[in-house]
């Protein structure tokens, strides 16, 4: 069963994980900045915001894991060894799959790092 058409299993999937990382970064920073700047005016507490951003983080991590699984499949589940540098359609596909897998790993760690303050910071600085 294919989750996505083979035709777009290409550069588009390559960008998925870094895009999720970027959106998660923006969501965390903008939400925290607006909540603290409008403290008292927003209808929810800081802890509610932490919880909401925590759920967004879980969703982002799930998206990245999905992207990694698809990339792993595209890479042939690690059947061939890199560098996949033959000028053939097969090697291009394997190379993209491998690159996507590595980018997914990087994005996963980056999202964890961005979300880290949610665990430790419990209030806005006045």
């Amino acid at each position: 069963m294919r989750l996505i058409p083979k035709e777009i299993e290409s550069l588009w999937t390559l960008f998925t994980a870094p895009t999720i990382w970027a959106l998660h970064f923006l969501a965390c920073y903008i939400t925290a900045a607006v909540t603290c700047a409008k403290a008292g005016a927003v209808p929810f507490s800081f802890d509610t915001m932490r919880l909401a951003l925590g759920l967004i983080t879980l969703a982002a991590l799930a998206g990245i894991v999905l992207s990694a699984v698809l990339a792993w499949r595209q890479w042939g589940f690690g059947s061939g060894d890199p560098p996949h540098d033959e000028p053939t359609r097969k090697d291009r596909l394997l190379f993209q799959g491998f690159a996507t897998l590595l980018l997914s790993g990087l994005s996963f760690v980056a999202v964890l790092f961005v979300a880290m303050p949610l665990v430790f910071i419990g209030a806005c600085q006045p």
């Binding site: 880290m116 665990v119 430790f120 910071i121 419990g122």
Partner: peptide, 12 residues
């Protein structure tokens, strides 16, 4: 990850 956690935990 450990260093970042320690530094962020230390901030307050």
């Amino acid at each position: 990850l450990a260093l970042l956690a320690y530094a962020v935990w230390l901030m307050p």
